[in-house]
Design a protein around this nucleic acid. Structure first.
Lengths: 246, 246
DNA sequence: TTTTTAGGTTGACGTGGGTCAACGGGGCTG
DNA sequence: CAGCCCCGTTGACCCACGTCAACCTAAAAA
């Protein structure tokens, strides 16, 4: 984990109206005329190198970010050094919503690979939400979706066994790769076993063993970060039929 | 768990401007003139009896709810019957935000005691947010706070031991009772050991044992649902210094 | 190219908390 | 006011996952 020093703000403005991520991102469902007004909203783009942070817990909140390229993790740290990864974010997803409530970020957002985000100044967003009908609704939906997602993670952490958690994680990644036009059966994870473990409330060894088990059972094929889902239905069954421990 | 049949919509409108929960609720921080406009927003009140649900997963989303009296739990159910309690809500807190994203609720909201909520029609809220500056910001803060809270729960579930989880839970309850003008050291829980367990990712026996352990150690005094925090600092220490298992 | 190092796998073993079971007490309900 | 039932407590046992350690692999650094 390195400091959050090197920030590149590229002057290049790129219009939402011309971005191929529209239907995954904040502008989803907005009309053409609304869309073109949105272009004013996105101020600049910012590149974040692998392992560097987009923002850190405690930073004053000024903007939210739409991921244009790459991927991130968000995490929370306890005083004693324990880390909890609270989410992994992919292109089109929005980062920074945690900062609105106290006007300071409450978690760290760290790039898993060299990435680029669109910076959306929050005061401008507020203002423009008053004017553009669809923007407000869409923004609320994005926040609400985050809440629903978090409930799903709580379900994972609170009432599933190790293998169920990993199966759910893999299916979720698969579905998100698919939504982005990549193969849902064949993808490269961007995070380490330790990060997956932290997210799933497991130790990295347990994650590794679960991967191996799935491979033995013919459900997947893994080699390092490269994963192929050979039997997605089998993974789904695992979640539904396996008895919970808790 | 009973069906969600009996709904009482009392015709009595009560103004936000005269409610003693303002500083805990949606109107927090709004000006006097804004506040009086808010009164139009809150349509009716609705009573929900103990064990009955305010809404269920799958119900179409129409409104959010501010708790005027009583308390609730929200939970998510898996096909195989496993339950995960995702939160406990007290007076002034907002329920139903999960419904915005898909226009259907994704969890169940169940009253822990006979309760009453203010019904806030979502379309009206959307509309009024365009007009009242402070309302939009405040609503965003409420949603953001929910996201931050969920991250805290993920931290609990993912990287704390049983006793740490319960200590954190008790301190959180204490702080919320305090914010409502009740004693932070002496309160009655409204939920069962099983519900606490589900929320904390533990079995009810483990919760019970942790309660007993805390009592032996002189940290608290428990009798059934009645809890007294004898040594809140000791509970805090437990969270910070105890080694994590995961 | 070789060296280094972070990330991943696997085995042996320990333990926190789950499981099962018995029992006690308080508050509805008739 | 009696009986029931839900809730909570406690003990004995066990297992899923954590811990510790050795080793392997791949990619970055030199």
């Amino acid at each position: 984990m390195r400091a959050s020093v090197p920030i590149t703000v590229s002057g290049l403005k790129t219009a939402c109206s011309q971005c191929n991520l529209v239907e995954l991102c904040l502008p989803f469902g907005m009309s053409g005329s609304e869309l073109s007004r949105l272009d004013e909203l996105v101020g600049a783009r910012r590149k974040v190198k692998r392992q560097h942070s987009l923002y850190r817990a405690g930073d004053t909140f000024e903007a939210i970010y739409a991921i244009r390229a790459g991927s991130f993790k968000t995490d929370v740290l306890l005083e004693d050094g324990r880390e909890q990864v609270t989410g992994f974010q992919m292109t089109g997803e929005i980062l920074g919503l945690d900062g609105i409530s106290t006007e300071a970020h409450s978690c760290n957002a760290i790039a898993l690979e060299d990435s680029e985000v669109c910076v959306i100044a929050y005061d401008k967003l507020e203002q423009m939400s008053h004017e553009i009908e669809g923007l407000q609704l869409q923004f609320h939906k994005v926040m609400s979706r985050e809440i629903v997602r978090d409930h799903g993670v709580m379900m994972l952490l609170g009432s599933m066994r190790a293998e169920e958690r990993l199966a759910a994680f893999l299916l979720n990644m698969s579905q998100r790769f698919n939504a982005r036009g990549f193969s849902p059966q064949d993808f490269n994870l961007r995070m380490t076993r330790e990060e997956i473990g932290s997210y799933l409330g497991l130790k990295l060894e347990t994650v590794s063993r679960a991967f191996s088990r799935f491979q033995e059972d013919g459900l997947i094929s893994v080699q390092q970060k490269h994963v192929q889902l050979l039997d997605p239905a089998g993974l789904k069954k695992l979640i539904q039929h396996q008895q919970g421990v808790r």
